[in-house]
Design a protein around this nucleic acid. Structure first.
Lengths: 103, 103
DNA sequence: GCCTGATATACCTTGACAGGCATATGCCTG
DNA sequence: CAGGCATATGCCTGTCAAGGTATATCAGGC
């Protein structure tokens, strides 16, 4: 995982951008209108997201169409894995416990 | 998910603390020695983690034994869910494609 | 009750980062 | 190639969080 993926996601506006892009690819202006932030602010957030690999963009005439990329999310999922075991193991133990109660 | 869970995880030292606690519960001093940070810094990070629910602690004599908590990780997992679908769907499509190639 | 060890907090300084405004760049159309 | 959108960047300012040092709290043993 890019070392600073969490820092990138720490910004609420950036999470809203990703949330929006998850639904559909969008131009910068569409995002500006959807999230009610200034255009320069949007461009800056998109730059951060782009450099961290969360989004990519293609040029369409004068517009830049941004698109969500899954790689960093997969990395996050991977990071979460060992922690996930902590609670799934607990659940397994609980299941076994409940199973035992049935006897 | 606590609104600022990502901000909490954005700190590398805090991630190392969680990594350490995932292995075993530890006192503050054990963590200080394991991660080579000053004791006040450690206490501050632990406070942040505690307030965000990532860890809990019990008192044992003069020591505080910290322990990892799974709840915020489950919330993170939950947040990740819709994004996870993005790439699993892609994988499914790939599988179908490969299956088709077999004919 | 005092001393010591373990941990928490207060205060200060510093650096990173977000947003606002102005401006630059890039691309299309006439 | 001029003018107009769409987007990016530069500069400035305010905010906030992290780490360092000093100090406070708190529990146990003598």
């Amino acid at each position: 995982m890019a070392v600073d993926a969490f820092a990138v996601l720490a910004e609420p506006t950036r999470r809203r951008i990703l949330d929006e892009l998850r639904r559909s690819d969008s131009s910068v202006n569409e995002l500006v209108e959807a999230l009610t932030v200034s255009q320069p602010t949007m461009s800056k957030h998109l730059k951060v997201l782009r450099e961290a690999g969360f989004v990519s963009c293609r040029t369409a005439a004068q517009q830049r169409i941004y698109r969500i990329e899954t790689r960093p999310f997969e990395a996050l999922d991977e990071w979460l894995k060992p922690y996930r075991e902590l609670w799934t193991r607990h659940l397994d133990a609980l299941e076994r416990h409940l199973d035992n109660l049935e006897y």
